[in-house]
Design a binder for these strands. Structure first.
Lengths: 150, 150
DNA sequence: CAGGGTTGTATGCGTTTGCATGTAATAGCG
DNA sequence: CGCTATTACATGCAAACGCATACAACCCTG
């Protein structure tokens, strides 16, 4: 049975984190860089760009996203149709499909990413000090790693 | 022109915050308390419960949510059909509609809220110390308030 | 106090989503 | 080995979403 103080601390933090995320994300969605593709689609391209050779299985990619597996499968259809990713069978597992950023996809991701960096900074750059941002990054990273290790 | 260090600090923090939110939210959506209603619907009930007399205009409510105004209007239809909220014209502005939690709606929100507190704690309670949670809450609250003041 | 602009909500419509399920490949167990 | 369970992805279908727009009430300026 956790102590009331411990319950309150973790809940207050999650609540505050979630509200902040909603507030920032509302503004991010209005930024010009997300006229061409949605934030969800960009998130897929971004996650792919962090993978070895811009390649990932759909399952592994899905792990880092909020959308369901069927939704990701269909989003992959659309991104493929736009020429931003390719689908290839995984040679080591015939069930799996490897998604890879095309050159075009990688280029678009980088272009949007650069704009996005400026956009984020314009939105929140003066909200906290550099030290506070660093602390925030540390704490949220620690939180995420704890979840992933569960 | 912001310094590169400032750009990096705010972006790294947002990136880490966002990833943590995705990771935690993925697990939250699987919790049993969100079988009956979705996390998005709960979020509406929760926000309403924080309003004076459980009442808010649709516009004001929408300010705190990621979904669009038309989506909220239709979600209100569904919540109304389930008997969780009521719609009444605002006497001070005939254009506006006041949403109010019904007793049933307030009861459900509290019941889910209580479960949710336990669920959150089970997910992240041991990820950080109480002091770290407090710092995280402070920083994310400061970030949100900065956004709202823009 | 008229007339055009603005604001708050609802609705038509095409798109995206999730759930349930189907299919094919792998893993694991006797 | 063979047979069932599991895993990875795709697809049918209904629900939910966002965009554009309609509509009505307010507001404001002359």
């Amino acid at each position: 049975m956790p102590s009331p103080a411990s319950l309150r601390a973790s809940n207050a933090a999650w609540e505050a984190l979630f509200r902040a995320q909603v507030t920032v994300m509302r503004e991010i969605q209005k930024l010009p860089e997300f006229k061409e593709i949605s934030t969800r689609e960009y998130d897929v391209l971004f996650n792919l760009s962090r993978c070895e050779a811009g390649t990932s299985r759909l399952k592994d990619l899905n792990q880092h996203l909020l959308i369901s597996q069927p939704s990701l499968s269909r989003m992959a259809d659309r991104l493929e149709a736009k020429g931003l990713v390719t689908r290839k069978p995984d040679p080591t597992d015939q069930r799996a499909v490897l998604f890879t950023l095309t050159e075009e996809g990688a280029r678009l991701q980088k272009a949007i990413g650069r704009e996005h960096v400026k956009g984020i900074h314009a939105l929140i750059g003066t909200a906290l000090t550099t030290e506070e941002f660093a602390t925030l990054a540390e704490l949220t990273t620690k939180l995420r790693l704890h979840m992933e290790a569960r």
